[in-house]
Computed example of a mutant assay.
Amino acid sequence: MKVDNSMINRETILHEINNLLINFGFKTSNIYERSCFDILARKKDILIILKILVNIDSLTTQQAEELSKISGTFLASPIIIGLKSKHSYLEDDVVYERHEIPAVSPQTLYDIIANDMHPEILSKRGGFYVKINGGLLKQLREEKNLSLKELADLTHVSRETIYKYEQQNSQAYPETALLLEEILNKPITLSINILESEHNHILDTKIQEPIELIKLGYEVNSSTKTPFDAVSTRTDDSKEVLKLKEQLSEKIDEIEKIKEKLAKKTVNNEILITNLERNRNISTLSKIAEKTNDISSITGHKALFVLKHEHEQNSIKNIPVIYTWELDNMEKNKDLEKLIKERENEGE
């Protein structure tokens, strides 16, 4: 696929991206144009949240914050797809950033999804940069019996710069990286996999409703720019996670093993996509249910309604309805899990 930049109709781009993902094995959500994201897509363990824009500079700070937090909560990778910035069209095979979220052109996304070709160039203030594989650089330099200064002289940079490259504390201009590769006769740059973004921000706006759910050990975090009201998370192992994080910072040599343990603990947290009554009638709740069902199917997380008033129904569009008085009578979260399962079975 070769994307024509004259095609600046956002709706067309949305559907082209959606078709691209489906054609290459992704399960995609509906399109949510008035949300902080437009499309959710999953393929095996990859979950991405996309925001489609013509001009990537039109992303607001509030949208970016909410997109970042939703991605962190769902362990997903947020990606902005756009055609241009306020200064120029986006170049292909280059990763831009807006509010610390990666932004790429539709063609770049196509190359990643269809051809497994990940970009190596990062656009930042001051120009284009690449990431150097510091360990490999040091190994190749030592194999050629070159000192830091000798390699620095050959590439017209300082000794300190080469040292920073080897410690992976600095990014290089593409021209410098190319010169290093010519001298060492081997590729030394790292690709940028935007499908594996390490986004750590999570929803942090705690709300005090429904109190009955909170009493069962769930933390309810509001989401204002999404098709659902909140995300409820049960994290019984929070102390263990904090301990792992401390070990992670203290024991650099064990960082990969600890990351794996931390990831497993995080994945095991139970997330409930939560919708509240908030004086809405059944017709409105049904419309919300349609969107929530879609998002639940993509993320793999269960959804529920927590309602205060009796509506004589145990589910809305197959999403379990739990009443606050029922939550109030529960002593542990296992009781909630059991009731959700019963309501799911009734809905089927």
Score class of each variant (00 low, 15 high):
residue 258 I to L: 06
residue 273 I to R: 01
residue 271 I to H: 14
residue 267 V to H: 10
residue 272 L to Y: 04
residue 312 E to Y: 11
residue 270 E to M: 03
residue 289 A to S: 10
residue 294 D to M: 04
residue 291 K to H: 08
residue 268 N to D: 00
residue 308 K to R: 14
residue 305 F to H: 09
residue 318 N to Y: 15
residue 270 E to Y: 08
residue 270 E to I: 03
residue 294 D to Y: 01
residue 276 L to W: 11
residue 269 N to S: 03
residue 272 L to P: 00
residue 298 I to T: 00
residue 266 T to C: 11
residue 292 T to C: 01
residue 304 L to F: 11
residue 311 H to C: 02
residue 262 L to F: 11
residue 301 H to R: 06
residue 312 E to I: 10
residue 296 S to C: 01
residue 276 L to M: 14
residue 286 S to M: 09
residue 287 K to H: 08
residue 296 S to I: 00
residue 260 E to C: 10
residue 316 I to M: 01
residue 283 S to C: 01
residue 314 N to Y: 15
residue 306 V to K: 07
residue 290 E to V: 13
residue 293 N to I: 08
residue 310 E to T: 12
residue 265 K to A: 08
residue 307 L to Q: 03
residue 266 T to A: 12
residue 283 S to I: 02
residue 304 L to V: 12
residue 285 L to H: 07
residue 279 N to L: 02
residue 279 N to S: 05
residue 293 N to A: 10
residue 318 N to M: 14
residue 301 H to V: 04
residue 272 L to N: 03
residue 304 L to C: 13
residue 291 K to A: 09
residue 268 N to S: 05
residue 282 I to Q: 09
residue 284 T to M: 06
residue 282 I to Y: 06
residue 265 K to P: 00
residue 298 I to K: 00
residue 310 E to V: 12
residue 278 R to C: 07
residue 303 A to G: 09
residue 313 Q to F: 12
residue 272 L to A: 08
residue 302 K to H: 01
residue 303 A to I: 07
residue 281 N to K: 03
residue 262 L to G: 07
residue 270 E to P: 04
residue 267 V to Q: 10
residue 305 F to S: 05
residue 309 H to V: 12
residue 316 I to Q: 01
residue 270 E to W: 03
residue 286 S to W: 07
residue 285 L to G: 02
residue 299 T to S: 02
residue 284 T to P: 00
residue 290 E to R: 11
residue 283 S to Q: 05
residue 260 E to Q: 14
residue 267 V to D: 10
residue 297 S to H: 13
residue 299 T to F: 01
residue 263 A to Y: 15
residue 282 I to C: 07
residue 276 L to V: 14
residue 303 A to Q: 11
residue 280 R to P: 00
residue 312 E to F: 12
residue 268 N to Q: 05
residue 304 L to P: 06
residue 315 S to D: 15
residue 272 L to I: 11
residue 273 I to W: 05
residue 271 I to G: 10
residue 301 H to F: 04
residue 299 T to Q: 00
residue 293 N to L: 10
residue 303 A to N: 09
residue 313 Q to T: 15
residue 303 A to K: 08
residue 314 N to F: 15
residue 288 I to N: 02
residue 301 H to E: 01
residue 271 I to A: 09
residue 306 V to S: 15
residue 316 I to S: 00
residue 286 S to K: 12
residue 291 K to E: 06
residue 295 I to M: 02
residue 310 E to M: 13
residue 314 N to C: 12
residue 302 K to N: 09
residue 309 H to Q: 14
residue 315 S to Q: 15
residue 277 E to P: 03
residue 283 S to H: 08
residue 274 T to I: 03
residue 267 V to T: 08
residue 262 L to A: 08
residue 308 K to G: 15
